[in-house]
Amino acid sequence: MHETTYEPVFTGDRKKQLDQLLPRFPTKRAALLPALWMVQQARGWISDHAMAEVAEVLGLTPAYVKGVVTFYTMYHQHPVGKHFVQVCTTTPCNLCGAEGVVKAFLEHTGCKELGATSPDGKYTVIEVECLGACGFPTPVMIGDDFIENVTPEGVPELLRKYQ
């Protein structure tokens, strides 16, 4: 996906942050994953332009960076909502009603379908494989927050904290 105008990510403080990061890695190439995280934190997603910028900054090729971005599922290649909601729907949670939780999130956020962004740009909801909290179904991640024991009824209240 393409942006029309592109502002570089690695300027000012973020450039400094990256420069501090680099000595912790044996090669610049090894810093690719954290550099991509920085882009995603700054922009919410990683555009083709941003991949090219990361390539330039780390001395890699744009194709190599895209190969890495597209290999991992946690890097967004499209814009996502301000709050990125990941609901665990793997077997144990599913048995305990995770599908109802997904449905509630889709309904209350206004996202029509999984992976789509709500019209107000606030939310994107996806299903995710095991979040590692099978004893506390249904676990959900909203942004970097980890929340256990979510029920369909609890969703509206939960969403009020993420405006």
């Binding site: 393409h2 083709d48 332009h49 991949m51 090219a52 390539a55 890699l60 090729t61 744009p62 194709a63 190599y64 960076v65 895209k66 190969g67 597209t70 290999f71």
Partner: peptide, 26 residues
């Protein structure tokens, strides 16, 4: 040069040209 690479994964794996398909920019 490194214009080409393998992108995506599994059955979607494919040859990509640069970050946006434009060989010139790559």
């Amino acid at each position: 040069v490194g214009v080409l690479d393998v992108g995506y994964r599994g059955e979607q794996a494919q040859i990509i040209v640069g970050a946006d398909g434009d060989p010139d920019k790559a």
